[in-house]
Design a protein around this nucleic acid. Sequence first.
DNA 1: ACTCAGGTATTAC
DNA 2: GTAATACCTGAG
Length: 292
Amino acid sequence: MRYFLDNRKRIIITDIGKVNLGHIFENGQCFRWNKAETGNYIGVVNEKVLELSETENEIIIENISMNDFEKYFIEYFDFNTDYSAIIKSIENLDEYINEATQFGYGLRMLNQEPFETLISFIISANNNIPRIKNTIEKISIQYGKFIMDYKGKSYYGFPTPYELSKASLEELRELGLGYRDRYLIDTTKKVIEEGIDLQEFKKMSTKEAKRKLIEFKGVGNKVSECVLLFSLEKYDVFPIDTWVKKILEYFYKNEVEKYDSPETFLKNYFELNAGYAQQYLFYYARENKIGG
DNA sequence: ACTCAGGTATTAC
DNA sequence: GTAATACCTGAG
């Protein structure tokens, strides 16, 4: 990876292989990035508003400083990870993962903020993406800090636990969260009252961090693993959602049956890069409507 | 009217 | 431990 400022003070990132912003932002790992009419993606991250555009092998970032980029966003975009090495380690396992990695070229696993990720994936349960994005946006407008007006739209950061603790059940119900509203209240209350710093979970083993996450209401196996994978740097988990379930059923059925559980199969099969493999498989399955 | 959407909590064996 | 069932909401 190489980066520099161009003559318009935009940050240019190159030497990261073939680029595809859609494969980063449309694969279900994040909910606060939107495609503008220009085709560029605008997102709110770490109380900054960023605009990304792409060429075949460059990502171009506008509206943040070089200092912010180096201090926060290199890690957020996982720019120091060599994806060609990850792909190489899993692509020859079978034809399906090979197709999936080719299909999802340019995909990157974002390192997201844990509280935002936890709340977002609690909302995601038994829900659909447009509604998930919409309610997260409403929560940010209502309880998060105003950041700036940018190209005709006002942007708000995702609320901190303290900011979200100001929300009442009645208020949340009006945002269209459905029955998940009380999970948000419970989770925020637990974080505040017990003084939980989710960043600390990064230091725990995957198993221990997962055990702690499942203590939150509305957090089960799948949601906890999404939080581990997308915000706590645990790449050995493999969230099994409806799409991955279909893949296991339609493509890996015979293999899975040799093990005592799908989880055991996945851990043995994909090993340390299970989380990356999951992301390619999920994206490929959903975009191509495998089994559906 | 009815199903579906990145599942989880609760209840009942 | 595991299987069955209810669950907010609104778009299609």
